[in-house]
Amino acid sequence: MTQLPPFVSSGQSPLAARKLAMAHGSYQVIPDLDLELPAGKVTAIVGPNGCGKSTLLNGLARIHKPRHGSVILSGKDIHRLPARDVAQKLALLPQENSAPEGLTVSDLVRFGRHPHQSWLSQWSGEDQRALDNALTAADVLDLADRPLDTLSGGQRQRAWIAMSVAQQTPLLLLDEPTSALDLGHQIEVFELIRTLSREGKTIAMVVHDIVGACRYADHIVAMNNGRIIGEGIPQHIITPELIRDLYGVYCDVIPDPGSGNPVLVNFRQNPTG
């Protein structure tokens, strides 16, 4: 186990968990967890299946209520804020999204304006600007009138991300945005996420792909059995020992000749071989 430094609150994080405990019914998934997302960075939450990373994300996004502890959104308990206020600060892209047949990209992205509208106010000039910006940011402007079911996996995922961008929130949470995509589409989505973070968004994503996480995340949170067993910038925390503790496999870690980011090679089930 990687030794964790004592938890120190900087008070700067836009989204943090304090002594968070989450459960599915009587099954406790996360016993006690503290986390602060670094502002303006991409945080990747990694870990084996069933380690509680999606549960953590759902807790952070106010989808599920914690058993104990709290989630703090810019200084306030997220469960004491109205859903609409939260939706103006935090956008969530769940895993496995489905849309009604025939829904176009621009129809979808328009939904991102819901937290800024009420049933009395109609589509405003500001909504239109946010829509255009989101379509441009996610590079789906050319696809605006295409039905989602006619797009490639990567294009479709970019359209969903565009919907979150239209929400104009400082925070974006994504649950496995690249699973079910092939390599080219994975890179396409990761690059978009990185661009959004450079433009000032604080992003947290649950990812299965540890290799992609090493390359595209500024900050990695490694989880196992509902606990954080390692946290920090990829160069510091990605070690063969951490990978063994997470997935029970052995590998070597070498620095990427270009960026210096860790690259995992030579995966194996036994220490030697």
Partner: peptide
Amino acid sequence: ALGEKVAMGLGH
């Protein structure tokens, strides 16, 4: 119609 979590994420 976009899913329960998406609806919640939009503040509904």
